[in-house]
Write a protein that binds this DNA or RNA. Structure first.
Length: 274
DNA sequence: ATGACCATGTCGCATGGA
């Protein structure tokens, strides 16, 4: 089974491109972030025509998360227990969606950006990551479970094009990295580290061409390879033991109409008999 | 070449992204 995560930066602007990529890449389950649409405007038909069931949560032009699957989609959960709120009136944002697909519990997460170290949004980001860790600690260890998405944190200095550029900004600060690393306390390890990248057979997806998953639209960031690695997958042991390949599809950043993020693909083997 | 922001709502500029 092939499972992927992709911050699509508006699904209405990119539905045809995403569906074409799904079909070309032989991906069974795709978790999306930043769909930037309300539920009633999601392009369901484009995905259904390609054989994918859709779960989506979006309440405005901000945020929005989805899971599409052609291997079954059930037990959809909007948000996780204890998910922090934001805004006035305070409400849980459309940043987390869970579903069971092909026997795997999948969570699509869009971690708050943080905006600036002194901004209230930064405290919200840390609280959000802490609450996600706490929720994940309570999920059944017997179910293969993977939490994928845009984490808005680069795990190490090697995961940004210039660590000095990010000093004093969000995405690389020690508290953010600590919050990310704390997922391990809940039994979830990062599966998308550069050392884990491989090639995927039968796919255009290249495995080892680079580690970044995001490049800014501005200042020729992509041609200059000024990117970050912030789109990650964390899996529990039951999921991790079935992992056979991980790849970043850098090709998807090219051309007109690209998202500023690219898909990250994970391949897992069928469960062991018994 | 992979190329000099993009997408949203609501109309012309504000907001968010990172």
């Amino acid at each position: 089974m092939r499972l992927a995560t992709w911050n699509v930066n508006s699904i209405r602007a990119r539905a045809e491109r995403v569906v074409a990529w799904l079909e070309r890449s032989d991906v069974d389950v795709l978790a999306m972030q930043e769909t930037k649409t309300r539920d009633d405007a999601f392009p369901y038909l484009s995905f259904e025509a390609a054989g994918y069931e859709v779960a989506h949560r979006g309440t405005s032009q901000w945020n929005g998360v989805a899971i599409v699957s052609r291997v079954g989609l059930s037990d959809v959960e909007i948000g996780f227990a204890g998910q922090p709120t934001w805004g006035e009136p305070a409400a849980a944002e459309a940043r987390a969606l869970g579903a069971t697909c092909g026997g795997v519990r999948v969570w699509s997460v869009y971690v708050p950006n943080g905006r600036a170290l002194e901004d209230p949004h930064y405290a919200y980001k840390l609280a959000w990551l802490g609450a996600l860790r706490d929720a994940a600690a309570g999920w059944p260890t017997t179910d293969p479970t993977v939490v994928v998405g845009d984490w808005n944190v680069a795990p190490t200095d090697d995961d940004v094009w210039d660590p000095a550029y990010y000093a004093g900004r969000t995405h690389t600060s020690p508290p953010e990295r600590a919050a990310l690393a704390a997922m391990a306390d809940a039994g979830y390890t990062e599966l998308t580290a550069p050392t884990a990248l491989t090639a995927l057979t039968g796919s255009r997806t290249s495995g080892t061409a680079g580690r970044f998953t995001y490049w800014d639209y501005q200042r020729l960031a992509f041609p200059k390879n000024r990117g970050m690695r912030i789109d990650l997958a964390f899996g529990n042991a039951a999921f991790a033991q079935r992992l056979t390949a991980v790849a970043i599809d850098r090709e998807e950043r090219k051309g007109k109409g690209a998202s500023d993020h690219v898909p990250v693909v994970l391949e897992i083997a069928a469960p062991a008999p018994g």
